[in-house]
Amino acid sequence: MKRIQLLDKEFVLSIPASDIKRAIWDMAMKINRDLHDKNPLMVCILNGSFMFSADLMKLIEFPCEISFVKLSSYHGMESTGEVKQLIGLNENVEGRTVVLLEDIVDTGVTIDNLVRQLKTQNPADVKVATLLFKPEACTRDIKLDYVGLEIPNDFIVGYGLDYDGYGRNLPDIYTVVK
């Protein structure tokens, strides 16, 4: 599909599934090289990261754990600027390497907030792996350890990303038509 309709918005194909898979494979190879001896706790940030995290974890070649947190900072097509924690992390991270698995970093508010919270629990290290990064939108000074693809500051859906709950199931990523 080159164009799709979700609710009141039209979207056009911007990143095909093959490009997404290649970016995840490249990232997994770097993580395998860097963290194979660190016993990391991978933390999937729900809801958007579920597809990315699942596909990435299939390529990790060493034993590790995965856990989940659920955060919310969007309403419609806009970031609210406020991060709400809906489901928190139950695992003890003290002395562990934690890898946050994020679908997209745009303003950086969500990931900055979560990294700060985790660092109060004395982990050995906190790393961030994001499938997508919007450098033009980022307003925080954050360190991203693994970035799949840099993209323009457009609103997108698909591959876990949604517009008011719709579009997460799409294998490709689409950009809103303005």
Score class of each variant (00 low, 15 high):
51 M>F: 14
110 T>W: 04
122 N>E: 13
158 G>M: 00
177 V>P: 01
155 F>T: 01
145 D>S: 04
167 G>M: 01
49 S>V: 03
28 A>P: 04
47 N>Y: 05
12 V>W: 04
58 K>M: 10
58 K>Y: 08
73 S>R: 10
95 G>Y: 11
113 N>C: 09
70 K>P: 05
19 D>R: 13
129 A>R: 01
136 E>N: 08
99 V>N: 09
30 K>D: 09
170 L>S: 00
11 F>M: 04
48 G>W: 02
128 V>R: 06
16 P>F: 05
10 E>Q: 15
36 H>S: 13
115 V>N: 08
22 R>D: 11
139 T>K: 13
46 L>I: 02
76 G>H: 03
174 Y>D: 01
27 M>D: 00
43 V>G: 07
94 E>K: 15
170 L>C: 01
48 G>D: 04
117 Q>I: 10
153 N>P: 02
15 I>F: 03
25 W>F: 10
171 P>S: 01
78 E>Q: 15
19 D>V: 05
13 L>H: 09
42 M>D: 07
50 F>C: 01
55 D>H: 05
5 Q>C: 09
85 Q>I: 12
153 N>E: 10
138 C>Y: 04
155 F>Y: 06
69 V>L: 04
145 D>T: 02
97 T>W: 08
65 E>K: 15
89 L>M: 13
161 L>A: 00
45 I>P: 01
93 V>R: 12
133 F>M: 05
16 P>R: 15
98 V>I: 14
116 R>L: 04
100 L>Q: 08
9 K>R: 15
21 K>S: 12
53 S>C: 12
129 A>Y: 02
120 T>Y: 08
150 E>F: 02
165 G>M: 02
33 R>L: 12
65 E>V: 11
46 L>R: 00
144 L>C: 07
19 D>T: 08
64 C>M: 14
143 K>Q: 15
152 P>I: 00
140 R>Q: 15
163 Y>V: 01
9 K>E: 08
155 F>D: 02
84 K>Q: 11
156 I>T: 05
166 Y>K: 06
106 D>H: 09
110 T>G: 06
37 D>H: 14
87 I>S: 14
107 T>Q: 07
143 K>R: 15
51 M>D: 06
32 N>L: 05
71 L>H: 00
142 I>W: 07
11 F>W: 05
90 N>G: 15
68 F>S: 07
10 E>W: 11
155 F>C: 03
177 V>R: 11
43 V>Q: 07
17 A>M: 10
175 T>A: 14
38 K>L: 12
127 K>R: 14
144 L>R: 10
93 V>I: 15
174 Y>H: 02
120 T>C: 08
91 E>F: 15
113 N>M: 10
169 N>R: 04
47 N>L: 07
98 V>C: 11
176 V>I: 14
123 P>R: 14
12 V>P: 00
